[in-house]
C-alpha cells in the first residue's frame, strides 16, 4: 500500500490504463503540458506524448463531441471538463448525443468513454465553479455516474470507468484533491455500481457521497463518543448504477436513515434514494427519512457563507443527534 493524494490517484488511474491499452487517449483543456489546472494530470503528457494526451482549445462541445466520435469508431477516450459547471455548455453532447446514441440506433453504437470533471464546492470559487451537479447526470438514462471519496476509490473506479463499455461521468470533488489515503500497490481496478459500508453501526445509517463521506465519518465518530449513537456510514460511490441492495440492507438494520448531500436541495440524489426506501422498506423505519443538503441556493464565495451552506461534520452531528434522540 502506498499513500497517495486524491489527485495522484487520478494520475495513477489514467496512467495504469493508458499503459495497458493503446486505445485509451486523453483530451482536455490544459491537461497536457500544463498538467491540469488542479495538477491532477501531471506527468501524463511526458509519458504518453502528444498523440495520446492532447491539449484542446476552450471548446467543450468539441472536446466531448470528439470524444464521442472517437469512442464510436474504436478508441477509448477520457475527456476532461475542467469544472463540472462547464458541462452546461456541452450538455447537448452529453444528454442528447452520448447518452442516447446506443439506444436510438438499436444498439449499433458503442460509446466507451469517460468524462472526468472537477465537481463541488469548498474552494471559494463562487457559484459558477463550485456546483455539485452529479444529479444532472443521474437523471439521464444512458450515463453511468461515479463520484469517489478516497484516493483508492479514485484509482480503482477510474480504471473501471475507462474499461467500462458504457459512457461514465466521473465526478472528482475538487476539495478532496489534496487529501491522502492508502492505495493498493500494482494494478487496481474496482467495480462500478457497488456502494461501500465504510463504518458499521446499529442506530442510524448515514448515506453520503464524495466530500460528504469524510464529513459523515467524522460526525459518526463524534456521535459515538458524545451521544452514544452508533452510525453506519455508506459511501454511495456510484449513483448509476445504484447499489440499492447495500443501502436497503443497512437501512433495514438500523431503521433510521439520513442522507448527506452536497447538492442544492431539490431533486438531489438523496430524494431518489429516499423514495426507494419509502417504497421498499417503509415499515422497517423507526423515524422519517432525513435529508441534509446544501440549501436551495447558489453557493457564495466568502469563506463563512460557503462553509455555512455545504453540510459540515458539525451539522451532520447535530442533525443526527436531534433526530435520533
Amino acid at each position: 500500500m502506498a499513500e497517495l493524494t486524491y489527485r495522484e490517484a487520478v494520475i495513477e488511474g489514467i496512467a495504469q490504463e493508458m499503459r495497458r491499452d493503446e486505445k485509451v487517449v486523453f483530451l482536455g483543456e490544459d491537461i497536457g503540458k500544463a498538467g491540469g489546472v488542479f495538477k491532477a494530470t501531471v506527468g501524463l503528457w511526458d509519458e504518453f506524448g502528444d498523440l495520446r494526451v492532447r491539449d484542446t482549445p476552450i471548446s467543450e462541445q468539441a472536446i466531448l463531441g470528439a470524444a464521442m466520435g472517437a469512442a464510436m469508431t474504436g478508441l477509448r477516450p477520457i475527456a476532461e471538463i475542467m469544472f463540472s459547471d462547464f458541462l452546461a455548455v456541452c450538455w447537448d453532447i452529453v444528454t442528447n448525443q452520448i447518452a442516447k446514441s446506443r439506444y436510438m440506433t438499436g444498439g449499433q453504437v458503442d460509446l466507451p468513454l469517460v468524462i472526468r470533471t472537477a465537481n463541488g464546492g469548498g474552494a471559494r470559487f463562487g457559484a459558477q465553479h463550485s456546483q455539485s451537479v452529479e444529479n444532472w447526470a443521474m437523471m439521464i438514462p444512458g450515463i453511468k455516474v461515479v463520484a469517489p471519496s478516497t484516493p483508492a476509490d479514485v484509482k480503482g473506479l477510474l480504471a473501471a470507468a475507462i474499461r467500462d463499455p458504457d459512457p461514465v461521468i466521473f465526478f472528482e470533488q475538487k476539495s478532496l484533491y489534496a487529501t491522502k489515503g492508502e492505495v493498493p500497490d500494482g494494478e487496481h481496478v474496482d467495480e462500478i455500481g457497488k456502494a461501500k459500508v465504510v463504518r458499521e453501526g446499529d442506530d442510524v445509517t448515514i448515506l453520503a457521497l464524495a466530500l460528504m463521506v469524510p464529513r459523515a465519518l467524522e460526525a459518526a465518530e463524534r456521535l459515538q463518543a458524545e451521544a452514544g449513537i452508533s452510525a453506519s456510514v455508506v459511501d454511495i460511490r456510484s449513483l448509476v448504477p445504484l447499489d440499492t441492495q447495500t443501502i436497503l440492507s443497512q437501512v433495514k438494520k438500523t431503521a433510521r436513515v439520513v442522507t448527506v448531500e452536497e447538492n442544492p436541495r431539490l431533486c438531489g440524489w438523496g430524494a431518489e434514494i429516499a423514495s426507494i426506501i419509502a417504497e421498499e422498506c417503509f415499515y422497517d423505519l423507526d423515524m422519517p427519512i432525513v435529508r441534509i443538503t446544501t440549501p436551495h441556493i447558489p453557493l457564495s464565495s466568502a469563506d463563512e457563507l460557503e462553509d455555512a451552506m455545504i453540510p459540515s461534520a458539525d451539522r451532520i452531528f447535530e442533525t443526527v443527534r436531534q433526530e435520533v434522540d
Binding site: S59, I63, A70, M72
Partner: peptide
C-alpha cells in the same frame, strides 16, 4: 452537434 463528433471519428 455532429460536427465535433465527426471530428472525433476523424481523430480515430
Amino acid at each position: 452537434a455532429h460536427l465535433p463528433i465527426a471530428a472525433g471519428a476523424a481523430w480515430q
